[in-house]
């Protein structure tokens, strides 16, 4: 099974209790598959009870990437969380575990 790790790069971080994850297609031809694979439902299911709020996904056609926002997903924010990855630098890579869904 092809995973997102095979076609995308990520950079993640924190904004309060929101985890922001930028997912970039590793080359332009993979962008449609990134768009299809990274859905709010898939992301929310993947991270389970670590995400207490909504997940939003915003396409960025200009850079062949998507912006993923996971609300209330950092255990209360960088200064309050009990997790070691206080600023959400590592959690973003977890999204690369998503299977690639593609009708293309």
């Amino acid at each position: 099974m092809k995973l997102l790790r095979d076609i995308a790069y990520v950079r993640s971080g924190d904004k309060g209790d929101t985890v922001s994850i930028g997912v970039l297609a590793s080359s332009p031809e993979h962008y449609p598959a990134v768009l299809e694979s990274v859905t709010p439902e898939a992301v929310k299911t993947l991270f389970g009870d670590w995400v207490k709020g909504d997940v939003e996904v915003y396409p960025m056609d200009n850079i062949e990437g998507v912006m993923v926002l996971m609300r209330r997903a950092l255990g209360g924010g960088a200064t309050r969380t009990l997790r070691l990855d206080q600023t959400g630098k590592a959690i973003g890579n977890g999204i690369l575990r998503l299977p690639v869904v593609s009708g293309h």
Binding site: R11, G13, D14, T18, S20, G22, D61, N62, M67
Partner: peptide
């Protein structure tokens, strides 16, 4: 590009006290 997507919210409205930038418009 990797840094354009770092720690932002809705990329269409990057809100700063000096103004609002649309990161989906920038050409790189």
């Amino acid at each position: 590009k990797e840094h354009l997507v770092y720690e932002i919210g809705d990329p269409r409205e990057y809100l700063m006290p000096d103004g609002v930038a649309d990161f989906t418009s920038v050409r790189i």
